[in-house]
């Protein structure tokens, strides 16, 4: 698993990359009450705002961590946004991307580096 400074995690499954947010991010957000997902078959560029997530505190965005195409979104989160707090690393993945270039993951943090990053 790889991690970004935006507190996303990425898990590679073949040529598809599954994206979610970390436990640390979910905890910082507080109880999530609203998730808006992108359309599938959307071409995105790294740092595009692709997901809107609102907690009891505020609204924030999830950015595309890499270039590619959104191939699947987790519709279950729309009906049950609280999953993001319950299981951020598992059930509460947000979207799957077909990566334009998997080497974009090479510079990202591994788990140990991310743990050090969040202190």
């Amino acid at each position: 698993m790889k991690f970004t400074e935006e507190h996303e995690w990425l898990r590679v499954e073949g040529d598809v990359v599954v994206v979610g947010i970390t436990e640390h991010a979910a905890e910082q957000l507080g109880d999530v009450v609203f998730v808006e997902l992108p359309d599938t078959e959307t071409e995105v560029t790294k740092d595009d705002e692709v997901v809107v997530i609102e907690s009891v505190k505020a609204a924030s965005d999830i950015l595309a961590p890499i270039d590619g195409e959104i191939v699947e979104v987790n519709e279950a989160l729309v009906d049950d946004p609280g999953k993001v707090n319950e299981d951020p690393l598992g059930d509460a993945w947000f979207f799957k991307m077909k990566a334009a270039d998997l080497s974009q993951l090479d510079d990202m943090m591994d788990e140990a580096a991310y743990k050090a990053f969040i202190g």
Binding site: G30, D31, V33, V56, K57, G82
Partner: peptide, 9 residues
């Protein structure tokens, strides 16, 4: 602003 229970709970 909140305790460990969190705002919703």
């Amino acid at each position: 602003v909140q305790y460990p229970l969190g705002v919703m709970k």
